[in-house]
């Protein structure tokens, strides 16, 4: 204990052989670290600097420009669809994960669901948008098939290309992601905990209320936050589905960067990006906190 807490004692006891050794195990991580530095830390720094840059020197004008109705709306919509798709995905995904966890560990259900989720959680962008447009889009075959039978799913407008459509399409990758993230926590639940509860006089209700519930709550909340961040930062799927306006923040950013109608405004785009970075950072910090607690309980 003492030796471990005090580097001097450690080195004194075990003399170095032949000077300082280069920590070789770092070399393997080097490409990844360079990658992270180039494409995560550097862009973040650029965003931060850009957000606070004015025409002449540092300025808060970009930040204050965020205070416009359509931009606040974009943030609100982003938060709304992220929350909605995270909650729907979390609940549905947790139920699916529970079915898998309580089933045969080498059974078909587990094998199929695990591998399918691994693929589908990454599914998104144009392909996913197209899949939905082709099936329930305004000329999608399911839509037409239903229409022939007198059911018009778009009676109140083509919601597929609006926010409700985004929630539906996002759910498609949120559920598999939930299964991937939540299944390990469910697998960490030991059957002895239920048996112990029963031998101590508790029933199913007591088990869920006092044991499984409290044990799984942090993992569930954490996974929901991860789903939120996942939806919040998704761009490609939304861009493929929605072709006009600034409905959510990532699309608004894109519009300010690439607009051909003279509304180019990289500074404002960076301020928007900064807002996203801050929100995602907070969410991920909470996620990490909850995850740490879970990993201690459900090993």
């Amino acid at each position: 204990m003492i030796a471990a807490g005090n580097p001097d004692v450690k080195t004194a006891r075990r003399p170095r052989e032949g000077g300082r050794r280069f920590p070789l195990h770092w070399i393997g991580a080097l490409p990844f670290l360079i990658y992270v530095a180039l494409f995560l830390l550097l862009p973040t720094a650029i965003v931060v600097v850009g957000a606070f840059a004015g025409k002449a020197g540092p300025s808060l004008s970009n930040i204050t420009d965020l205070n416009q109705g359509f931009l606040l709306n974009a943030f609100f919509s982003s938060l709304l669809i992220s929350t909605a798709s995270a909650v729907v995905g979390a609940v549905a995904g947790a139920l699916l994960a529970y079915a898998v966890a309580t089933g045969n560990p080498r059974g078909v259900l587990r094998r199929v669901v695990s591998s399918a989720c691994g693929v589908l959680a990454q599914f998104g962008g144009v392909t996913l948008a197209f899949a939905f447009i082709a099936t329930i889009g305004s000329v999608g075959f399911i839509r037409l098939w239903l229409q022939e039978r007198g059911i018009d799913i778009f009676a109140n407008g083509v919601w597929l290309t609006e926010l409700p459509g985004l929630v539906l399409v996002y759910t498609y990758f949120q559920i598999p992601l939930m299964v991937l993230v939540f299944l390990p926590a469910l697998d960490g639940i030991r059957p002895q905990w239920r048996e112990a509860t029963e031998s101590l006089g508790g029933g199913t209700w007591h088990y869920w209320r006092y044991v499984a519930g409290p044990l799984l709550a942090p993992a569930f909340l954490g996974a929901t936050l991860l789903l939120f961040a996942n939806a919040f930062s998704a761009y490609a799927t939304a861009a493929a589905l929605i072709s006009q306006g600034n409905p959510i923040v990532p699309i608004a950013i894109s519009n300010f960067l690439t607009s051909e109608t003279g509304r180019n405004n990289p500074g404002l785009a960076q301020a928007l990006a900064l807002g996203m970075v801050v929100i995602v950072a907070i969410v991920m910090a909470l996620y990490a906190l909850l995850q740490r607690r879970t990993s201690r309980w459900l090993r």
């Binding site: 048996e195 112990a196 031998s199 101590l200 006089g201 508790g202 044991v211």
Partner: peptide
């Protein structure tokens, strides 16, 4: 089981990990 009044100790560690030692003992 929960009507039988049996005390069990399992081979695998089975304490409730989110409860302290005394809370575990007090659970029943």
């Amino acid at each position: 089981t929960n009507k039988r009044d049996v005390g069990m100790v399992f081979q695998a560690y089975s304490l409730f990990p989110h409860l302290t030692a005394w809370q575990n003992v007090a659970f029943g």
